[in-house]
């Protein structure tokens, strides 16, 4: 029973982790809490539904299309809503992000209505038994896709030139600019990657819970953000760890009878972790400089 809950938690956590990665990468480079990220995830889910219902595409093509659409959206948002504010107070882009978030939510409500819509049926439900654990086909898909995407991200960040530039920029923004890194391109790329992962998360969550709504980005975004901070914001493994941690904690909390407190679990964990490790589980400690 416990192992079943943990598996369910890991599945949920994997989707949180996909969203959390976008928060953490963007924060790592420009120290912006991109509160519109949850909305990108939501739009990603809707694009997925749209591809399946209107264009009759399969899951793989729809997933790819959702990711592509969100790449364009993420890069555009950064270019027009954040870049002009890069050298102003830290709160200015944050407010811009909140404005965008309101815009995207209401836009989607206008198009699709405020009610959740079901995710189209793309495959037959199947359950597999692994000893005492049951795993559904959807869960397998989620875990496989999330693992592939995260492995891909790891490869890019570790071995590809632009990924290395990303790491350099998050280490020291100004110095990397002086070293000839085109920081604007790196930031665009970061938004592109983060947005595509969020879109994938959106489609997978839609598939998992069989529901998509214009407001799905609010709570999921917030929890994913929690996961990013809990793991240590700016740290990519931290976001993965934080996502899984929160997913499992939430699932176990619900199973333990705290279902009405579900939305508070992530935050309670977060505050406790922050009080003992002010920069998260895998975050680097802040050195007091005088």
């Amino acid at each position: 029973m416990l192992s079943q809950q943990i598996l369910n938690g890991i599945t949920l956590g994997a989707t949180y982790a996909l969203i959390a990665l976008g928060y953490t990468m963007v924060y790592g480079i420009i120290q912006l809490i991109n509160f519109a990220h949850g909305e990108i995830y939501m739009v990603g889910a809707f694009v997925g539904v749209f591809m399946i219902t209107v264009f009759q595409q399969g899951l793989v093509v729809s997933l790819a299309a959702a990711m592509l659409a969100c790449v364009i959206m993420g890069v555009t948002i950064e270019r027009f809503a954040y870049r002009p504010l890069r050298r102003s107070t830290r709160l200015a882009p944050l407010i811009s992000a909140i404005g965008l978030s309101i815009f995207l939510q209401t836009l989607m409500t206008k198009i699709k209505g405020p009610q959740p819509i079901p995710f189209p049926h793309v495959m037959e439900d199947a359950l597999y038994k692994l000893g005492p654990i049951e795993i559904s086909k959807v869960q397998i898909i989620i875990l496989v896709v999330a693992s592939l995407l995260m492995a891909g991200l790891h490869f890019i960040v570790k071995y590809v030139k632009i990924g290395k530039a990303m790491r350099a920029a998050s280490e020291d923004y100004d110095t990397s600019a002086l070293m000839g890194i085109n920081v604007n391109r790196v930031i665009s790329f970061t938004f592109a990657i983060g947005s595509s992962l969020a879109a994938a998360g959106g489609v997978l969550v839609g598939l998992y819970f069989n529901s998509v709504s214009p407001f799905m980005g609010v709570t999921a975004g917030l929890k994913a953000f929690c996961a990013a901070v809990l793991g240590g914001i700016g740290s990519i493994p931290g976001a993965m760890l934080g996502g899984l941690f929160i997913g499992v904690a939430e699932t176990l909390g619900i199973a333990g009878g705290f279902d009405t407190y579900k939305d508070a679990i992530a935050f309670t964990l977060l505050i406790i972790v922050l009080l003992f490790r002010p920069t998260g589980l895998l975050g680097r400690p802040i050195q007091k400089k005088v």
Binding site: A81, S96, G99, I102, F103, L104, Q105
Partner: peptide, 15 residues
């Protein structure tokens, strides 16, 4: 379109 414009207004005013 009220809230949509409201959101854009926030972005615009900030910029």
């Amino acid at each position: 379109y009220r809230m949509m414009i409201y959101g854009l207004l926030m972005v615009f005013m900030m910029i």
